[in-house]
Design a protein around this nucleic acid. Sequence first.
DNA 1: ACAGAAATGTAGCCGATGCTATATTTCAAA
DNA 2: TTTGAAATATAGCATCGGCTACATTTCTGT
Lengths: 149, 149
Amino acid sequence: MSREDLAPGPETATETTDADRFTNARAIRSTALFEDYTELIADLTEEFGEARITDIARRLGVTHPTANKAVLRLKREGLAISRPYRGVFLTEAGAAMAREVKARHRLVVRLLIAVGVPPEAAEMDAEGIEHYVSETTLKAFEAYLDGRG
Amino acid sequence: MSREDLAPGPETATETTDADRFTNARAIRSTALFEDYTELIADLTEEFGEARITDIARRLGVTHPTANKAVLRLKREGLAISRPYRGVFLTEAGAAMAREVKARHRLVVRLLIAVGVPPEAAEMDAEGIEHYVSETTLKAFEAYLDGRG
DNA sequence: ACAGAAATGTAGCCGATGCTATATTTCAAA
DNA sequence: TTTGAAATATAGCATCGGCTACATTTCTGT
């Protein structure tokens, strides 16, 4: 006996299922770390002219071996480049991701503040929320902030 | 030479640092899965009187060994109980988590829709966002939805 | 009652993401 | 210039969360 026989549930035909949503969330979870790293490397490069492993690690609150391993993955994915014992730099793809993430971050913070969230909490929560905001939702946020919401 | 010497940055004294935010986000990431499972087990129990591994797996879009392992972790954490080859049930702690998560989920979806996000996108994005919404932000959402925003 | 189907459990693999401990290299100051 | 400190790299460990393959148990229909 399958449960669908007993209770088809609200979803029919082409609707989005629970599984779709969870699968989507899992996919995002796996890219969130890359987004954090590219954004941070962009920040550090702007501030200091380069992003050093030690600084990356300190800003993220992890040990440097952890940061180093993550940078290896970034390089493998074509998002960053670096030479041994030297700073890390973003590729064009990495820089593009960083710009995109930063824009999303700012928009999420602005929206949270606009609906009454204290700035400190908005910054804190945005750090996690930003990764899950879709293009559609982003557009809606923009419209809302432009007073058309 | 440490970078703090060159650029103290905006944070001083008791302010929240980047590292604090990222550490917070990582902590949440590690509980997000438990929240998904407890919420789902609560739903299935209400619908069918029990939550079976196969149904949990299908709803989450994972294989049953994956669901089984997660349930083992839930049991280890005191959030669920089960006997071999039988359905899974929440402990009081698990049920409390489920109630809390469900309330948060509904509130996030309502807020997203209120600021103009299409319901379908709101449901999709809420699945990830809900885990990162703090108590403070939740209160702000409530106030906003009550027209006091 | 029993055979086959369905559900559940277990073993073992993999990659991601954290850690500590230990090289190695670079940098800075005497 | 050289030497000690700082930064970086690497090795090895653990857990999580996904998978496939296979064993076991329960359920169901004849």
